[in-house]
Nucleic acid binder design. Structure first.
Lengths: 340, 340
DNA sequence: GATTATTATGTAAGCGCTTGCAGAAAGCGC
DNA sequence: GCGCTTTCTGCAAGCGCTTACATAATAATC
């Protein structure tokens, strides 16, 4: 392959010259920022088409001091969770006229200056996913006046930064209650997310309340620590099995870990749901595909991305946004809990 | 939530003033573009830290006429396929010092000027996924000198544009051969992708060759048209079932459609793989999770993103890149083909 | 018909950076 | 010590746009 020689791109001056007007007039018809005579508009439009002119984003940003770009700070891109979320974000960003700059932390050393690359220059605002940024960094960005919206993460104490969450507690409670009341389970284990995962904490709270409401003790040895990956779920379950712990159900804080649990159970010859019921949270696209189809709580992931982005756009454009957006979830009964 | 008042961000002039040097010197230490005395470097560094200075990307792009940004044109973001690919792209982009601007077509009307928003100004190069862009648009971008790399798509005739593909034919051939030789299947249906999907065409070629090599006729009625979604696979399979067509295996051009086929078969009371073997292509993360675990061909999706981006970075920086990158695939035998 | 609003356009001053050019300072050979 | 290279640094000209501000032309008011 050889070098491609780029012709100089036409600038606003070229358009102005061809249309026989000044560059400010061109700018005004492009942006619609001031009235322009119909005839002039036509001439300018024609010149634009003829030259195949596209405004330079860089020059626009520099002169207009806004980038029309939103930065996305993600801990990772892989995982079934992110595709729908990204889609929601993309849709809302596009609707608001913003481009999307993606920055996944996974791919780089977690040095502090990643905020530099997005933080204060490339973008008009940032969408911060869970634990991507520590309290300190969020606080600093806030102090610098960078609009941000937090996804699945509460702002540092005292700061008013919009955040978006799923409704976790209520349906975690409902699902565990289902396990207890409908299926008569009494020894229900819980699979936790990583330390600092607020979703996990809330889901656990619902779990605890449901147990307590039925006079069941929370067994500390049945709290699976680790994280929300399939491996974590498998490991934790294997550990319980190895220790000979008794349990007749597992409530996993998310679907991925639930799948790991099912794998471990199956490998150990335990039947799901007969011997051990397993339920998850999130309702990932493949939750219904696995065997047995996973009973879980549906979380509107795409909507989370959409709403968060809308809040951010609003924050950027008007300076105001909802302090907290809570998205409703829904229990989805399939077969892994024991239901036909 | 109230307005956040942004302090003016420090500029290169502020740094220069504080360090007692000119802005060009600051620029030189920031970019390392010319030798600067050690002592001066220290002073400038100190001023930068003190002021918490970050260069403005817009100003840099404008002055340096490069954006250090890669544009990604995707037909969609959802789907298990995109997460790993995006991850690969992200990693390679980051390594090359480029930011990633994501543009999913799904979310907007497919008007022609989407190339405008990415095309000739925001980015130094574009990664074009399959059918996002027609031949005409690709040709135009090429004519404008915009570096681009095509993913799973050949360039328009006569143009030398780098592209990245999986090795499709060989292992499609191998997989169908496996169905024939090991499992004695003779009436093997094929599930096609959307018209224009070159991956599908190549996989179909492998399928046809395998049939022919074994003296089996290709049955036109067993070519499932449609697309590569689960729904498409289900619909096509249902149609075959409804028409009472005989077949003892389905080779789906991708995993998603294969899952649809399995669903349809199961709903109709056919056993997989006893009555009908089903195999796919791609080896999506959940292919091993479904019941029965899917025999398929593993495609290195993340690697595809990675390699394509590396080629693009090379094209941007050096003007040269591999004309075609072919990524090896691998047959993955699980149970849906009939193997234990 | 003179005065005042209104609309349409141009002028020019940046936005914050990169970079070619030139000058100053310092090192080198003989 | 005198030219000559080699380092280091500053000056200033843009990059392509937005946006006050000024101006010209037109319409409205009494």
């Amino acid at each position: 392959m050889t070098v491609q020689i780029a012709r100089r791109r036409p600038t606003i001056s070229d358009v102005a010259r061809l249309a026989g007007v000044s560059i400010s007039t061109v700018s005004r018809v492009v942006n619609g920022t001031a009235p322009v005579a119909d005839e002039t508009v036509l001439q300018v439009r024609h010149a634009i088409t003829t030259l195949n002119y596209t405004p330079s984003a860089a020059a626009r940003s520099l002169a207009g001091r806004k980038t029309q770009t939103i930065g996305l700070l993600l801990p990772q891109i892989s995982g079934a969770f992110f595709a729908p979320m990204l889609l929601g974000i993309e849709i809302a960003a596009r609707q608001g006229g913003f481009a999307l700059l993606v920055h996944a932390q996974e791919s780089q050393p977690a040095n502090g200056d990643l905020t530099a690359s997005l933080g204060s220059h490339n973008v008009d605002g940032i969408l911060v996913f869970t634990t991507c940024l520590g309290d300190q960094e969020v606080t600093q960005l806030h102090a610098e006046g960078v609009p941000q919206v937090l996804l699945f993460r509460t702002p540092p104490a005292g700061l008013e930064i919009p955040c978006v969450f799923f409704e976790n507690r209520e349906n975690a409670h409902a699902l565990v209650t289902h396990l207890i009341e409908v299926h008569g389970r009494r020894r229900i284990a819980f699979l936790q997310g990583l330390a600092g995962n607020e979703e996990s904490v809330q889901r656990e709270a619902g779990y605890r309340e449901a147990l307590e409401a039925h006079g069941l003790a929370v067994a500390p040895e049945l709290m699976g620590v680790g994280g929300f990956t399939e491996i974590d779920g498998r490991r934790a379950t294997e550990a319980w099995l190895r220790r000979g712990l008794e349990f007749d159900a597992i409530f996993s804080g998310n679907d991925e870990a639930a799948i790991g649990a099912i794998m471990a159970l199956r490998a150990a010859g335990r039947r799901v749901p007969e011997d051990v019921a397993v339920v998850g949270f999130d309702d990932l696209p493949y939750a219904r595909l696995i065997e047995p189809p996973l009973t879980t709580v549906h979380a509107p992931i795409q909507d989370a991305g959409l709403q968060a982005t809308r809040q951010l756009v609003s924050l950027i454009q008007t300076g105001r946004a909802e302090r907290m957006t809570l998205l409703p979830t829904e229990v989805v009964i399939r077969r892994s809990c024991g239901c036909a």
